[in-house]
Design a protein around this nucleic acid. Sequence first.
DNA 1: ACGGAAATAT
DNA 2: GATATTTCCG
Length: 747
Amino acid sequence: MGSNCSLHLAWPEGKHLRNDVEVRWSKYGLKFTGGEIICANQKGTVLPATRQPLEEGWKRLEGMASGDRRHGKEPAAVEEDNFPEGLRVLAVDDDRVCLRVLEAVLRECKYKPTGVMDGRTALKLLREKGEDHFDLVITDVHMPDMDGFQLLELIGLEMDLPVIMLSVNGEKATMYKGIKHGACDYIVKPADIKEIRNIWQHVVRKNHVAVIHNRSDSDDADQRVARPVIGKGGAKSKKCSKKKRNDGEGSDDDKRGRRRNTWKKPRVSWTGELHNRFLEVVYRLGVDRAVPKAILEMMNVHNLSRENVASHLQKYRLFLKRVTDDPMKPNHMGDSSESRRNASYMGMSHQGVLPSSALCPCGSHNLNAAPPSILGPHGLSIQPRNWAMSTVGNGGLMPDTGSRHASGPPVGLFANTSDQPMQDAFPRIHFRSGKAYHSVLRQKLMEVNTSVVPSSHPGTSSVAAEMPNGGQLEPANQFLVQPREQIGHFSGPMGMAPSAMGTHGDTQLPYLAGNCTNPWQNNVAPSSFAGSMVGAPLLPSSQVNVNLPQINQTIFAPSSSEMAVFQNEQQNQMAGTNINNTTSVDIYSQQMTPLFNMASNAAPVEMTNANFSPMNQMMVNGGSTSSPSLNLQAGNPVAPPAQMANGGGSSSSALPGHLDSSVVPPAQMVNGGGSSSSSLPSHLGSSVALQTQMLNGGEGASGILPVQDDPARWHDSDHQPTYSTSNFLEDIFASMASQDFNPDALW
DNA sequence: ACGGAAATAT
DNA sequence: GATATTTCCG
């Protein structure tokens, strides 16, 4: 057949790096030159032999059109004469052009092709027609919706058809993955027609070997598939040195039962739920004792491995450390890189993912007890291949940083949060250095945890979290930050992390903000707050939706004299920044803390706009004030009361008392995205700029803007009031009262 | 088993 | 390109 015919034409130049003589596999620098294989990782680092499981198989691949890699055999030397014409080949590719070419080539090679555009259609076809209807399947691996790997798995589970995968870049890992998923062979695009012509051998062999399979019976598909690849070559010895994993040595692995097939472990998605559980356990154990094994046991999540936990713990520690170490650096609004970095850890703080029911979770519940149903039967959520694209679940905490998130449906952010992977951005916290590591960690933990999220309401579509806002406020998030030192008493976050708090009475709060001077700009966002942001749609630093202006402000708590200063500074800054809507939210976002302002009367509303970011306000109390009544304004429902607490040394009692008066926040809410009409209150409209306000202890005096709010607006029909005030309050209080404030009660 | 770090998957 | 997870290794 026209050997001239080549699939080369079907694929765009640049994607592949293969030519007849030398092969440069892929974008990661894997090279295949003159019989010698050089393996490099994504960064161009040459990998040691140990990391080259396919080495041998790879070599073999060169030279042979196809082979039965699945069984680790050399391709049967089949006589051309045996070529069975008319084999029915199902070709799957989402690219029409490629598919056409493939079909043409197959036809050219005397096969009888049937092409389908995507994986799902292919699977459907296979199910409808039955496996007997086809002799072979050849599929591209990179397809949306259902990629080749998924298709491979499903086909493998449901039928016994040889499947050959096509990979665009020829990356070893991809090939290997395909083999592990059951592909009997792989062909790198652009594929030479000779390879296509030889695929019939798989069919022949399959029929042949059917018997041979007896052995595979016990092994699951997994094993049978991969092993071959590795063990194949004779020469491999050296390379396999480390490889031992699969080779005989596996004793170690075997013992642990780890030997599991070569199947790769499914990727675990650390959803907000899962992460929250993790945090709880960590808190319970205490930083010192929080080691992977113990955490794993306490988490009691099915299918979660120690390694998974260790990895997450590693990341968490890294987060804590970063927080600790990072000197506050003033950041300018524009410091995107910085914010980005932080973003990666954001998720580490407690996610607001918990459903309201779960609100209390924190500490008080015994984790060991039944895990929240949210986690699902297994508790674990494995990421679907494409999850990243669609979800971001940040517990609401994090705003999406990535653009990709933007695309995601804002809606239901909260609602789904629990199962969504959390975005990992940790809020940045700055601690003062100098403390003992543990001590710092402890603090951090507390902080971090604090945030709890109010529940998510399913109904809401929008991103935003619920913000109850009391009637009055709409201030955007205001955080009160206390001066570092003063932060000492944290009352406990409202929502959650009670436990942590409880534990350390003395603990000081980490200080969230850096210095007074730069309160906002710094990323100082208090972690705890961050957590709290929860509901709100926090916009995380990076970006939020453009449209929405969000504003979060941090407020320092002023207990001390610093307050004054602080305020001034803020004001100044504000002035500078003032609100442009859209503008960088970054600055603010990190600091967002939800505030609770509970207005007594106002019903909290959930602000749902996706873009909307609620403003949270933390209440701080400056020194003195105390207002008698509680007023929680609606910032974030979640905001833990504790935080509100007071700044200065005030008593831990922090609660509500202070809140009210002290805060004066007028923040602005913006609504983003979407329509302006959105749920926000009218004033909030996107166009509205917010003002920042600080809360200061005393009256709003300090220069801050008064808030004006019309509670009524929140009730607009447009709004979806999801959270009822009463409930909201109840939750809050309940948590405050029972948990948060009572440390001992918790764990 | 741990924890750090490299590798690899998204 | 940057992150998130997994895997390897001392």
